[in-house]
Nucleic acid binder design. Structure first.
Lengths: 249, 249
DNA sequence: CTAACAAATTGACCTAAATCAATAGTTTTC
DNA sequence: GAAAACTATTGATTTAGGTCAATTTGTTAG
């Protein structure tokens, strides 16, 4: 599916309308504590941030924000899964990232200038996100400079990981890009094999890797035929990642 | 040229050996003041940082650091031009970025963990860089939390720009990737035409855009034939960027 | 449970881009 | 200033992967 129907027209629900205002209710927000942007905060600062945030429920395929929209919030994923993508002038949908529970996204908007979302964000399935006002986090950081190092570490890490994503995309053939993508999904890198779950439907992994779904399917079928991966729906078992790397040359 | 000769063997000069120790001599270091990571520093803090840094002269094609090397320094380019690239197991050289005077690079190493360079860095021509100890900047930031916001803004900006680079690379055909790359080189985006200078030799722009030099050459020849760009060595004149964008679909 | 829809796979075909090869320019170097 | 060494261009050929179309499989809704 090259030119998906534009997301603009697929959904009618309004974007960025909060459903639940949080009244200091922290239930289900423990995962925040495990995120680099929040784990150094004092209880009261975290509480205060949460009080200024809203919990958002998103349905399957629901759009959260649009590219170029003014960005007043960033997001923490509590459950479900989302993807970031861009639409170009010809309506082609290009997937750039997928976001899992425990991750933040659009958090660069805290310091971006101008603060406009660089892409679309939509739920891949029914999801719950915390919608945190950029200004609330900024204010907190201004009042508590001791929180800055954690944020700096997070941003540096983000930049490194985008750099790494870019590196994969300079690989010139589709098969090798896919192999590198799969290796990166393995928890211990190429050290040992294991099962990985594709973070996106196959047609969107294809989009992320700049190839057609048919190409993705054929490459995977070929790897399967050569005993390099075992495929079960979106779960792939990679027994020998080193062998996979060897053939990708 | 797909498989360049490995940089490992091309040069014999030692890596990361400073030639000039700075003795508080700030001559030629004014450009530091224009960089987001330094322009909020007090004179004395900047001076102190410079005292702990070394000025490095690099010859044409000289290697500055290697991928995976422990990273104790980051760099500010005073003159010349450098490129960042990675080598994969089969020795293919993939260009990821080019750095101009006034830019910093490897500055994410200030907060990376583990702090190892993510790529190679080499001078594209005779260049001069300031080699700043990561620890010196860290210490300064710890002592002066008021400097953190500028660093945060810089890192956020860096993450956004890497994201944008990634976006270009999800474009599936070579011609459109090249067109988008050229548009991004224009100072005012697509707003108006102008002359742009390729920041890398053509064969390395090709590498950066995941295509072969021959493909790059042919696409450019075609754009030229259609009156979309005028080419003069590494300088390109784009009269009508909007028309260029239109055909890239 | 079945209809309707969406996602994935597979085949046939074709085109964009890689590869191989030769030539022509450009810089360095001596 | 000529030789050597890159760098870029152009042509011929091949191939990876895109496109179009049909089928299968899986998912959602009634």
């Amino acid at each position: 599916m090259v030119a998906m129907q534009s997301t603009e027209t697929r959904y009618t629900k309004p974007v960025l309308v909060a459903t639940n205002k949080l009244m200091g209710d922290e239930s289900g927000l423990e995962p925040l504590r495990n995120h680099a942007l929040f784990n150094t905060l004092s209880d009261s600062d975290l509480q205060n941030l949460i009080l200024q945030s809203r919990r958002l429920r998103l349905g399957h395929h629901q759009l959260l924000y649009r590219q170029d929209m003014p960005a007043h919030h960033f997001f923490f994923v509590m459950s479900g899964r989302l993807r970031l993508y861009r639409l170009d002038s010809s309506g082609i949908d290009r997937t750039l990232d997928s976001i899992a529970p425990g991750d933040c996204f659009a958090e660069v908007m805290i310091y971006a200038d101008p603060a406009r979302y660089a892409c679309y964000a939509e739920a891949l399935k029914s999801s719950e996100v915390l919608m945190i006002p950029v200004k609330a986090y900024q204010d907190m950081l201004n009042k508590n400079p001791e929180y800055a190092p954690a944020a700096l570490r997070h941003y540096a890490q983000r930049a490194v990981s985008r750099f790494h994503d870019l590196e994969i995309m300079t690989v010139q053939n589709a098969r090798d890009r896919l192999i590198r993508y799969l290796i990166d999904l393995l928890p211990n890198g190429a050290a040992e094999g294991g099962e990985v779950e594709l973070p996106l439907p196959k047609c969107l992994v294809a989009s992320r890797l700049a190839m057609q779904p048919e190409t993705f399917s054929r490459i995977l079928a070929d790897l399967k035929a050569n005993g390099l991966v075992r495929v079960n729906r979106s779960k792939l078992f990679i027994s020998d990642p080193k062998r996979l790397i060897e053939i990708s040359q």
